[in-house]
Nucleic acid binder design. Structure first.
Lengths: 273, 273
DNA sequence: CACTATTTGTCCGTATGTATG
DNA sequence: TCATACATACGGACAAATAGT
C-alpha cells in the first residue's frame, strides 16, 4: 500500500530546485502551480499586458517538466484568465481584480439581526440522551445523568444558515416541548422556566462539514464551517446550556467592532457594541 | 489534453448516491474522506471505544468503492489515529483529545497572551504591490496606489499557529522595515510612527487551506481554518491597516465571555473582557 | 528576404497513482 | 487479489507561429 514512505531515516529528499511545491500534498503539481499563478493574477501582480512566465521558465523554477507547467497555463486559459499565442507567450486576459477578501457584500448575514424572527427553524431531533463526555464536563454533570438534546437547522429565505446541537440538563429540558423550540429561542424558553441567565463562555473555531451536517446545510461534504461553542450559566454560575452552532460562512459572518485599550501591553483590544 | 470536459451539453453526470464529495477538488477521494474522519476524531465525535463507520458503510455514504473507503481508514491507521481489527471494526487508538470541544485545555492558545512575545515570526513576503480590489476598497484608497504587503507565519513551540497577510498604505509602510516586523507587532510599529490607533472592524469566518497556506501552516490541503479579517482605523476614522489572519483551529481558539443584556429583544449579549 | 531564437501546440512512449468492479 | 480504465508526470521530438536580426 505504501502511504507516504515516512522518509525512514530523516533523509531530507534534498529538494533543491523545487520552489515551494509539495509533492506529498496530494494535489496535482500542475494544479498547485495553477493556483499560485491565479493568486498572483488576482492580486494584480501581472499588470495590463505583461507576459506570464513561459512554460520552460515555470518548469525550471518549480522543478517540473514542461508538460506539467503547460497544463497549469492551459488550466488558466480554460478559465479564461489568460490568453496564449504561439511564439508570443501567455498574457493576462481580463482585468479580474476580484476575490472579495472583505465579505459583507452579497447576502451575508451578520450576528444580531439574525437572532430575530425572520428565520425559519426546523427541528431534526429532540430527545433525551446520555451526553458526550465533553458536554457532560462543560455542564458539570454527574456521571449517569441524561440531558435534553435538540438538533436544529435555521434557514433564511429557504437557504440553510446554521446547524445547532444543544444540550440542556434534563430537569430544565422538561420545561419545554419540541414544538416550543420551533417558535422561540432556547434562552427565552429557559427564562420562561424561571432560569436567570447570567453569563456565557464562547469559543469560536472552524471545522469541516461531515455527511449529516452537509446534507442539512445543503453544502458539500468537507466544506468549511464556522463553529461557535457556547456554555451558558445562570446568575449563580450554574451551567444551564451547552450549544454548538455550525454556520455556513458564505451565509453568516461574525462581525464586531473593537476599541483600542491604551497602555496595556498584553491586552490590545476591548470589544464594543 | 482535455481539461475538464465542461460537460458539453449540460448533461449532468447523474451522480445520485455520491453524497457530495467534490471530485473537482483535485484531491484524491480517499484523502478527502481521510481528512473528514480525522477532523471528526480530533473533535471527539467518536468518544471512548465507539467504532468508526465500517468500510462498507463509508463506501455507501460517500458513494465510492469499498477499496477507496478502506484506503482512507488505512491512512488513519498509518498515522496511528485508529486501530483496526478484522471482524471487529475500526476504533480510535489514542485518546487524542486535542481540539477539546470547550477549548482551554491542551495546548490551545487564547487570543490575548498570544500577542505577547512568546511566539516566533517568520516573514514570507515583504513588498510593495497594487492591492487587490477588496483591500483597496477597505482602505479607501485611490486607484493606482501601492500598499505595503507582508505575509507572516507565527509559531509557538515551533508549530505554526497563524498565517497573516497584511496591507498597509504605502506612506505608512515606509516607517518600518522587514526586520522590524519579525520583532514587534504591526500595530506597535504603526504607533511608533505616530499613528493614533482608534477602532477596528473585525469579521470572523471559516475557510479551507489552499496549497500555499497549507504548506506554511504545515496542515493538509483542505483543512479548516479560522479566518479573521480586520480593518484598523486611526482616531480620525482613517483606515491604516487591513489584515487577514488564518488560524489553525487545533492550535488557536477565539474565546470570549458574554454577559446577558436584559430587556432587549434583538440584542441578547454584550461582550465583556 | 532569409535566418534564428523563442514560445506554444501536438505527438509519442513510459511509469506511477487513483478508482472501479 | 486481479484486471481495467483513467489521471498524473516525465522526457523527448517535431511542427507552427511570432518577433527580432
Amino acid at each position: 500500500m505504501r502511504l507516504r514512505p515516512k522518509s525512514s531515516l530523516g533523509v531530507r529528499p534534498s529538494k533543491r530546485a523545487t520552489l515551494r511545491l509539495d509533492p506529498g500534498l496530494r494535489t496535482p503539481l500542475y494544479h498547485q502551480i495553477y493556483i499560485l499563478l491565479r493568486e498572483q493574477i488576482m492580486s494584480g501582480a501581472y499588470g495590463d499586458d505583461a507576459l506570464l512566465p513561459t512554460e520552460f521558465s515555470l518548469a525550471r523554477t518549480y522543478g517540473v517538466s514542461r508538460i506539467t507547467a503547460k497544463r497549469a497555463l492551459d488550466e488558466l486559459k480554460a478559465e479564461g484568465l489568460v490568453e496564449r499565442r504561439r511564439g508570443r507567450g501567455t498574457s493576462v486576459a481580463k482585468r479580474v481584480e476580484s476575490r472579495p477578501v472583505d465579505a459583507n457584500l452579497s447576502g451575508l448575514i451578520e450576528n444580531l439581526l439574525m437572532m430575530g424572527l425572520e428565520t425559519a427553524v426546523e427541528i431534526l431531533a429532540f430527545d433525551y440522551v446520555a451526553p458526550p463526555e465533553a458536554v457532560r464536563a462543560a455542564l458539570s454533570l454527574a456521571d449517569a445523568v441524561e440531558v435534553q438534546r435538540a438538533v436544529r437547522v435555521r434557514r433564511l429565505d429557504g437557504v440553510p444558515l446554521s446547524y445547532t446541537v444543544s444540550h440542556v440538563p434534563a430537569e430544565l429540558g422538561r420545561s419545554y416541548q419540541r414544538a416550543d423550540l420551533a417558535k422561540a429561542p432556547l434562552l427565552a424558553l429557559l427564562e420562561r422556566a424561571g432560569v436567570l441567565i447570567g453569563s456565557a463562555d464562547q469559543t469560536i473555531s472552524a471545522t469541516l462539514a461531515g455527511p449529516e451536517v452537509a446534507t442539512a446545510l445543503e453544502v458539500q461534504v468537507g466544506s468549511p464551517l464556522l463553529a461557535i461553542t457556547r456554555t451558558v450559566f445562570d446568575q449563580n454560575g450554574r451551567p444551564v446550556e451547552h450549544i454548538v452552532i455550525l454556520y455556513r460562512p458564505d451565509r453568516y459572518a461574525y462581525r464586531m467592532k473593537l476599541a483600542r485599550v491604551q497602555g496595556s501591553a498584553t491586552k490590545l483590544w476591548s470589544p464594543t457594541s
